[in-house]
Design a protein around this nucleic acid. Structure first.
Length: 273
DNA sequence: ATTGCCTGCGTGG
DNA sequence: CCACGCAGGCAAT
């Protein structure tokens, strides 16, 4: 287990603790004690990890803040509306999406080469899959279970040729997590409905939040927020397709395929930038 | 805060 | 086909 991952585990534990004790407004000392670090060390680790102090971070991550953001629905709505009218101006990601052809869909990746590798990120270990036509997979491992994650990828692209390649994956991680160069290509495979939902997610700029309902409305299916949640849960390319930016209408955090603590963490970091 | 009834899509019989 | 499961929403408690 790498140092980076251990740090992430600590942060995750801290966030869980906060989540369960929001009503008590835990102090820095209490949080630090819970994860067995000195307040000093914890503060330092946190700052290094998130780029802001724990206190500032909490302001952003806290439920009340999320509620406020949702309440100011003009911001949210204008964001989404503007996203529709001129997507390229609002995007923090200039992602060009390529969807697989019907033939490829049927054959599930025949003649497709996927360079895969596991990579460490500030939010945990993830499995990267890259094809000639773009990134096709960015999923986090739960409990460091790489085998399960890998078999999921193989199932998703049953006939593809898999090549282990750490260098390609490393470049992707640097591009997505550490650089301002966000001009990435992705390769998506899904039903029409899923593609519509995933592309709607790409229109939410970093630092902004949307709701399942708002997404449902933008794709012209205003009563299908549940179906939207379903489709979002199947997003194969985390972070780049920002499924973490979608909350419930009432401001609750909602679910996340890779754990709500991780979702909070990603939102918090984006908010604080 | 909790409950019960609604939604639409994907999956497995 | 049909039946069920979901990262949701809403109205009535």
């Amino acid at each position: 287990m790498t140092e980076r991952h251990e740090d992430y585990v600590r942060i995750e534990k801290a966030i869980k603790f906060i989540e369960q004790n929001t009503h008590r407004q835990p102090s820095l000392d209490q949080i630090a004690e819970h994860i067995n670090l000195s307040p000093f060390h914890f503060q330092k680790l946190f700052k290094r990890w998130a780029g802001v102090s724990p206190k500032r971070f909490l302001q952003y991550v806290t439920l009340e803040h999320a509620k406020q953001i949702i309440k100011e629905s003009t911001i949210l709505d204008t964001t989404l509306d503007m996203g529709l009218s001129s997507p390229s101006r609002l995007h923090d990601l200039f992602v060009s999406v390529e969807a697989v052809t019907p033939g490829e869909y049927k054959t599930e990746g025949l003649n497709l080469q996927i360079n895969y590798s596991f990579q460490e990120t500030p939010f945990g270990t993830c499995l990267i899959g890259v094809t000639e036509r773009g990134i096709c997979n960015l999923t986090f491992t739960q409990e460091e279970d790489c085998e399960t994650e890998m078999s999921r990828l193989r199932t998703r692209w049953e006939n593809a040729e898999f090549i282990s390649d750490k260098e390609i994956g490393k470049k992707v991680v640097e591009q997505v997590f550490n650089s301002s160069d966000r001009d990435v290509k992705i390769l998506l495979k899904g039903t029409n409905f899923q593609l519509k939902v995933w592309q709607a997610l790409l229109r939410i700029p970093s630092g902004n939040l949307a709701t399942y309902k708002a997404i449902a409305e933008t794709i012209g299916a205003p009563t299908s927020s549940r179906a939207v949640g379903n489709a979002i849960g199947l997003n194969p390319i985390g972070i780049i397709i920002p499924c973490h930016r979608v909350l419930r209408t009432n401001g609750e955090i909602g679910g996340y395929m890779w754990g709500t603590a991780r979702k909070r963490a990603i939102i918090g970091k984006e908010m604080s930038q």
